[in-house]
C-alpha cells in the first residue's frame, strides 16, 4: 500500500508537470531553440493563478496562469525577433525580470497561501481555504465510498483528464496551418519566409504557446499544493528538459504526436525516478543534482548508441 500511494503521488506529480514538459518540447524539439524563460514563466503562472484563485475564481485562475505565461513568452519572442537578442539570453533576461513581477503579484511576499479572510459564525475573523479545482472536484466524491476518496487519486484523475485534453489539442493543432508553420519554422526558417509566411510571427506564436503550457503547469501545481512560492521555479527548465530527453530516449523519435506523448511519458517517469530516489533516502536537496545527471545521461545516450553502431559496422568490415 505504501508503494501504491507513492506511485499515485509520483504519477500525479508527473501529470502536474506534464504541461511544462510539453512546453519545453515545443521550444526545444519543435522550434529547436532553447528557451530559458521557463523558470520565470512557471512561477508567473503560479502567482497569477494564486491571485485569481484567492479572488474566488479557480477555473479562471488556470486561464489567467496560462495567459501570464503567454505574456512572458511574448516578451522573450519580441527580444528575439525585434531586437535580435540571442534566444538563450532573451530567455534569461525575461526570467530575471519576472522575479520582480512575481514578487509584486504576490503583494511583496515570497510566498502566499490560497486562503481568504472571512468572519465565522462566532464573529471572529478566520482564514478560509480558497476553492480550487481540486477542492471542487473532490466535493463530487464526498458522498461515495470508492478508491477516489484518496486525495492523491483525485488529483491524479483530474490532472490526467486535463493533460490528456491538452496533449490531444496540441496534436491536432500541429497539423493545422498555423501549427505546421510553427513546426516548419523550427525545421527551416528560411523556407517558411520564402513561403510568404512571417517567420517572426510563427516563432512568437510558438514561444508564447510553450510558455503558456509551462505557466499552466505552475498554475495547476499552485492549486494542488494550495500555495504559491517564488522558489518553485528554480531549475524548472532542467526538470522539463529531463522529461523531454527521457521521453526521447525511451520512445524514440516518432514524429509530432509521438513526441508530445513521449514528453508526457517522460514527465511521469521522471517523477517516478525522483520518488524512488527519495525512497532510498536521497535528501530533498539531492533532487537537482540527480536531475542534472539524468539530463546528461539521457543526452549522451544517442551519441553512445551511434558510436556503438559505428563500432559494430567497423568490426564487421574487418
Amino acid at each position: 500500500m505504501v508503494y501504491y500511494s507513492m506511485l499515485v503521488s509520483a504519477l500525479s506529480q508527473g501529470l502536474l508537470y506534464a504541461p511544462m514538459a510539453l512546453g519545453v518540447f515545443v521550444t526545444f524539439r519543435i522550434l529547436k531553440t532553447p528557451d530559458l524563460t521557463v523558470d520565470g514563466s512557471f512561477v508567473f503562472g503560479m502567482t497569477a493563478c494564486a491571485a485569481v484563485t484567492i479572488a474566488g475564481h479557480p477555473v479562471l485562475a488556470l486561464f489567467a496562469g496560462a495567459a501570464a505565461g503567454a505574456l512572458a513568452g511574448l516578451c522573450t519572442a519580441l527580444l528575439q525577433t525585434k531586437l535580435r537578442i540571442e534566444p538563450i539570453l532573451a530567455g534569461i533576461l525575461v526570467a530575471a525580470g519576472l522575479y520582480t513581477v512575481n514578487y509584486t503579484v504576490l503583494g511583496g511576499q515570497s510566498n502566499v497561501y490560497l486562503q481568504y479572510q472571512t468572519v465565522n459564525s462566532a464573529g471572529a475573523t478566520v482564514n478560509e481555504a480558497s476553492p480550487t479545482i481540486y477542492k471542487d472536484f473532490s466535493a463530487l466524491f464526498s458522498g461515495g465510498n470508492s478508491i477516489f476518496l484518496d486525495t492523491n487519486a483525485q488529483v491524479l484523475l483530474l490532472t490526467l483528464a486535463i493533460t490528456a485534453v491538452l496533449t490531444a489539442a496540441l496534436a491536432v493543432f500541429f497539423f493545422t496551418r498555423p501549427g505546421m508553420a510553427i513546426r516548419a519554422t523550427g525545421d527551416n526558417e528560411e523556407m517558411v519566409r520564402s513561403s510568404s509566411i512571417n517567420a517572426d510571427l510563427t516563432r512568437t506564436g510558438g514561444v508564447m504557446l510553450a510558455n503558456a503550457l509551462v505557466a499552466l503547469s505552475g498554475a495547476l501545481l499552485c492549486q494542488q499544493q494550495r500555495y504559491a512560492d517564488l522558489n518553485c521555479g528554480n531549475s524548472m527548465l532542467v526538470m522539463g528538459l529531463a522529461s523531454v530527453v527521457i521521453g526521447r530516449v525511451l520512445f524514440g523519435d516518432r514524429g509530432i504526436v509521438g513526441g508530445l506523448a513521449s514528453a508526457v511519458g517522460g514527465s511521469l517517469l521522471y517523477r517516478v525516478v525522483i520518488q524512488a530516489a527519495y525512497k532510498v533516502d536521497m535528501p530533498s536537496y539531492g533532487v537537482k543534482l540527480l536531475s542534472t545527471l539524468i539530463v546528461v545521461c539521457a543526452l549522451a545516450v544517442p551519441l553512445l548508441r551511434r558510436r556503438r553502431a559505428a563500432g559494430q559496422r567497423g568490426g564487421s568490415r574487418v
Binding site: 496551418r177 501549427g179 516548419a184 525545421d187 527551416n188 528560411e190 523556407m191 513561403s195 510568404s196
Partner: peptide
C-alpha cells in the same frame, strides 16, 4: 535550403502552397 527536412514531402508542398491555397483547418 528550400525544404524542411523533418517534414514530409506532402507537408512541404502544403506549406509552400499556403500562399494560394483556400483556407482549410488542416494544412
Amino acid at each position: 535550403r528550400g525544404t524542411a527536412p523533418n517534414m514530409t514531402l506532402e507537408e512541404n508542398l502544403a506549406l509552400a502552397y499556403t500562399r494560394k491555397a483556400s483556407r482549410s483547418f488542416f494544412a
